[in-house]
Amino acid sequence: MLKINNLHAEVEGNKILNGLNLEIKPGEVHAIMGPNGSGKSTLASVVAGNEEYEVTEGEIIFDKSNILELSADERAQRGIFLSFQYPVEIPGVTVTNFIRTAINQIRKAKGLKDMPANEMLKKIREKAAMLSMDRKFLSRSLNEGFSGGEKKRNEIFQMAMLEPKLAILDETDSGLDIDALRIVADGVNKLRTKDNATLVITHYQRLLDYIVPDVVHVLVDGRIIKTGDKELAKELEVKGYDWLREEAVV
């Protein structure tokens, strides 16, 4: 589904990704772990199409085509979703109107008509219930005054509404207490199918107790230096990242 070959990317002249390779197949959950500043969030942004980052080398193949030339909205329309580490506040646009706009714009790009209002409403209610979201929440301005946990839950709500092929969860566990973490993780697990894939970016192993990965990668200095299964995440939790750095140098 997603194949990243030799990806180099920089922002404002600083090289952040240095020849990253990654392959994710349908139905899989991958986790990327790594210390601060290793390039985890950059990778998420670059795959989602943030123009602030410049890709200097390599390719990103999604569903058999190179998406590097596509804008962020075109990538989203093809089924890439990014759950933000810091979701943006948009005062004046309600959660409902925002998601409605997103869904209908994606449908428009596919040559479909707007989703009928009653169908939309039904879907919104269903997904909000799945994430134990208060109905009032939906008529509030997007992320404005939301707590950290509410923002993350709202990200997963949007993911549930958009039903992406590839969901990238960037530090979705940060700012969540244990109950919220469970609800969010349950939501993500419920959305898993054999045809979609999830890329979990996280600092801590904690989230991976709930969203269990098939593959764990360690990202250091803009490259994946080690790949393993879920046991690797546990090892990292105990030993930190330094031993891997040394190993990589050797």
Binding site: D73, R75, F98
Partner: peptide, 29 residues
């Protein structure tokens, strides 16, 4: 806000529509 524009685009909303939505939102209150 460029960050807000990217956020909206990452949800499938094209730039032109995203800008419009931000402008609406700005005038909304």
């Amino acid at each position: 806000d460029e960050e807000a524009l990217f956020y909206m685009q990452s949800r499938g909303i094209p730039k032109k529509e995203a800008r419009a939505l931000l402008m609406y939102a700005f005038a909304n209150n």
